[in-house]
Nucleic acid binder design. Structure first.
Lengths: 365, 365
DNA sequence: GTGAAAGCGCTAACAG
DNA sequence: CTGTTAGCGCTTTCAC
């Protein structure tokens, strides 16, 4: 899912021979305060007619339409959407609330959301909540205050639940992180199964002491993945050791690194330290590899590592990361569609959706 | 201007046991259409008074204020900002246009912007332009249509120039990428000097064949860094070889990886391939390290690598990346402040500002 | 096919 | 201190 190119005027763009070719023609009058009324006057029609052509209504005589259009771009007029929004009672803005914009996993999802939103004439307002309930609530209030028409929430389930109670009627959907019981439309993956897949891969490579570096248990996905991990181990006849598990309140590289170092140095019964680690996000896993290296362990020879998400970076680190791939782009796109659907038909029963994940085997495990 | 809502999500749409438990307590009345008038009535005062307490004006008797406040939260009323915005003629939305939200460098800057925007009562609308002039223009139009009060642009200078000609009067500022000649307020670093610093570091380590993996020349910073690279080499008595230089139209890891592989395999006069590479972004540099490894070169033993930006990941890869640190957070914060300043006083002469960079030496070079 | 007029919900004079 | 009132710029009946 790589970006794209967008060459524009590349290559030929010389240092700056002439920075302003535009000999200062008369651009359509920047026109600060210019209202539909002036355009109407200039075109010799009524405001109603101008409004009609602006909105592409059918019932306007071509000749009239042309007159109006001419007046519009002679004057450089742009509709004032503030007024339009008030009148039509919609802002055409969609909120997206993420715990951390800097996380590449969320970044890709956000792209998916943005792309379908724009496709449908909406803009996306990105909100970095830092997983803070207070900020979350204040952003959510934008819905009630009519600043936004709908919202997509990727924040921890614990936060969502609080939100849901206070406002189950508001138009919002959950993405990646969701509680099916909550009655809010959602899209995500089967975290329990995915975690099991990761662990079973490690098992199949002969590992029996498998560590889990997990995120905050505020996240339902963290609890689900942990359960998947636990059950997979148990099914293989292994009794999970508590000392193999850690919960972090951050997904940063640094957090993963120090957690891994800690995990390996912990007093384990002689050589009973984990021979493999399952980290619930790639950022964590990349940190883990770094942390392992810092305490003299090699990956995958001494310790195998599997991550989660399959961000684009996963293939680039050394060793390339074995991981569970989530369809990030689609997750975002689907969330946006679900929301749009809800907006179009508030009464319809919007379903929950699960998208498929898959195990990507590279060299780290 | 499409508005239909396309199909829902396909894939495994869960059976959806019971999608709407909806305990239906009685929260303060979700109150869809509730206007200031009803609150006024309920409080036994006029709309003007309600408005006054809502906006924290002084001249309201405490008793009256309390009555109003009581009515407000008894009814669960929230102001309709659509109306407020129209009346006050401002949207309190700031646009941020970036070429790629997924790039960790931009992500951190965006955080800086968002933080000071919120601090000042603004929200930030994030726009991923993909460095596409068309999308850029359409986003920019949001300013004219009053959807946003101001904008911060991080897109290529070539695009900015087109924008500037069409609308130098609009309230916007440039960040990281800027043309001082353009008369638009900006914040960034001294790219020429920074690139020189990177190259001089390599020189001091004894390298004389230094490659440059650069981004698209649409970016002024790319041209400036190239010049810094060229001059540093020349000053050291080295004649730069054209075959040491590459321009990429992407900053993705993959792009860096394949460029590096290509650079090393190119037919150089016998063993005249570069012994060091300067990449103009950390993402590129990380890709470069990966690409080098894929053709059997070790870093830094066979080839040294220095990057640019100092994203958090730089310290986590193997080997940790030597790089030029940019004060990303401050860049964003400063850009936001400049814009706010311009908004507060449109006539004031807002200056350009350069922030300091610094060389961070780690193990890759 | 086109125009006149009534608001959308709020803020800000201006009176009292 | 509080209430009345006039719009902000647009869309949308309802007449003609």
């Amino acid at each position: 899912m790589s970006k794209s190119v967008s060459k524009a005027a590349r290559a030929t763009s010389l240092p700056s021979s002439k920075l302003r070719p535009q000999p200062e023609a008369q651009p359509p009058r920047p026109a600060e305060g210019l209202s539909i009324a002036q355009v109407a006057e200039q075109a010799g029609v009524s405001v109603a007619t101008v409004s009609r052509v602006l909105n592409g209504h059918e019932n306007v005589r071509p000749a009239t339409r042309d007159k109006v259009l001419a007046a519009v771009d002679a004057s450089g007029y742009r509709v004032n959407e503030l007024a339009r929004n008030l009148r039509t009672a919609e802002s055409r803005l969609l909120l997206t609330m993420v715990p951390d914009v800097g996380n590449p996993f969320y970044a890709e999802i956000v792209r998916g959301i943005d792309s379908v939103a724009r496709q449908h004439g909406y803009f996306m307002l990105l909100c970095d909540t830092g997983a803070d309930p207070g900020r979350e609530r204040s952003y959510f209030d934008l819905l009630r205050r009519r600043r936004a028409d709908g919202a997509i929430c990727l924040d921890p389930a614990t936060i969502q639940q609080a939100l849901g109670e206070a406002s189950s009627a508001l138009p919002w959907v959950a993405c990646c992180e969701f509680d099916p019981e909550m009655g809010v439309p959602y899209v995500g993956i089967d975290n329990y199964k995915a975690a099991g897949d990761a662990v079973r891969h490690l098992l199949s490579r002969g590992h029996r002491r498998i560590g889990l570096i997990n995120s905050d248990v505020d996240y339902l996905y963290a609890r689900q993945r942990q359960q998947g991990y636990l059950d997979a181990l148990t099914e293989a006849g292994i009794t999970p050791d508590e000392r193999w598990r850690m919960n972090l309140n951050s997904l940063d590289y640094e957090a993963g690194a120090s957690a891994a170092a800690l995990l390996m140095q912990q007093p384990h019964a002689s050589n009973a330290a984990p021979s493999a680690i399952f980290a619930v996000s790639d950022t964590l896993a990349i940190g883990v590899i770094h942390g392992l290296r810092s305490v003299g362990k090699r990956v995958p020879d001494d310790v195998a590592v599997v991550g989660f998400d399959d961000i684009s970076l996963a293939a680039q680190v050394d060793p390339p990361l074995t991981t569970i791939a989530q369809p990030m782009r689609e997750l975002g796109e689907t969330a946006a569609r679900l929301l749009l659907q809800r907006l179009a038909n508030p009464l319809a029963n919007v379903p929950g959706v699960l998208l498929p994940h898959r195990l990507v085997i590279r060299r780290s495990a």
